[in-house]
């Protein structure tokens, strides 16, 4: 098998980590109504890692991303990027959302140029930077269109281009292809893998699809719900592969089965507790 367990919280020191989660937990509400979205967890992400967090709804994976993006504050612990604690959203952490996060009153070009404009570049420089990333994601000819004139797949490309144009240290991606049809998703997954190889970005990718995680990731963190916690963590070799059909190899299928059973057994635990 091309996956093997690793200690995701201790495999490297905080100094070495691009992203470091130390004893991070999140509880929503207070008293009897409080909900534990995330029990205390440690996680180290090295520069250039493609880390997929996989798990069912309610496992705290989106909470984890929101905390990393700075949209929300952890109840305990801290999250650091290059050793600096995260307290609010910042341009060094680019976020790609599931859908509906494009600014539909702006053209594609204006959407993608928004980041450089907001971070102080002149309008003409921002335009140039935006055109460059649009070229990279194959949307140069659609620069003057509005998002609602594009297909769902193209809209997600715009979202990725928008996040990339700021040249962020880390890309945070919250199930960006979950709402797309299977064919489009496969095309885009292949593109993301190429993009990651070309840019060497550190990527934190949220998904509920084991297959997606195996296809993309160098590191996979499996989470389980109620309360949200890390169930297991694997290093994976599939993400570095160049084979677009890797997902039909026996090794891949075996790995998928392994993680699937892990998630299923955690569901069984839950049923027993209830």
């Amino acid at each position: 098998m091309l996956i093997e367990p690793y200690a995701c919280g201790t495999h490297c020191s905080i100094e070495e980590a691009k992203l470091a989660f130390q004893n991070v937990s999140k509880i929503y509400g207070a008293g009897a109504d409080s909900v534990t979205a995330l029990t205390p967890m440690d996680l180290m992400v090295r520069k250039g890692d493609f880390l997929c967090i996989v798990g069912p709804s309610g496992c705290g994976k989106t909470t984890l991303l929101n905390l990393t993006a700075g949209f929300d504050q952890p109840t305990s612990g801290k999250i650091m990027i290059d050793g600096v604690e995260i307290s609010k959203p910042g341009a060094e952490r680019g976020v790609v959302f599931q859908q509906g996060a494009l600014f539909n009153w702006m053209t594609v070009l204006e959407n993608v140029a928004f980041g450089p404009r907001a971070t102080g570049h002149s309008a003409s420089v921002a335009r140039e930077m935006a055109m460059e990333t649009l070229q990279m994601v194959g949307l140069k000819d659609f620069a003057k269109k509005y998002p609602y004139q594009l297909s769902g797949g193209m809209q997600q490309r715009v979202g990725i281009a928008r996040a990339l144009t700021n040249d962020p240290e880390v890309l945070l991606m919250d199930e960006p292809f979950a709402a797309l049809d299977q064919q489009t998703r496969e095309v885009l997954l292949e593109e993301i893998r190429l993009l990651w190889k070309r840019t060497g970005k550190t990527i934190l990718w949220i998904t509920h699809s084991i297959e997606e995680a195996l296809f993309l990731a160098t590191h996979i963190v499996v989470m389980s719900p109620r309360p949200g916690r890390i169930r297991a963590a694997f290093q994976s070799g599939f993400g570095r592969s160049d084979d677009p059909l890797i997902s039909v190899t026996p090794e891949f299928v075996a790995a998928k089965r392994h993680i699937f059973e892990l998630l299923k057994s955690s569901q069984k635990d839950e049923v027993q507790i209830q």
Binding site: F71, K88, A91, F97, A101, F103, F114, T119, R162, L172
Partner: peptide, 10 residues
């Protein structure tokens, strides 16, 4: 989400 997107773009 749109506000968060703008914030995380700086």
């Amino acid at each position: 989400m749109k506000i968060q997107a703008a914030q995380s773009l700086g």
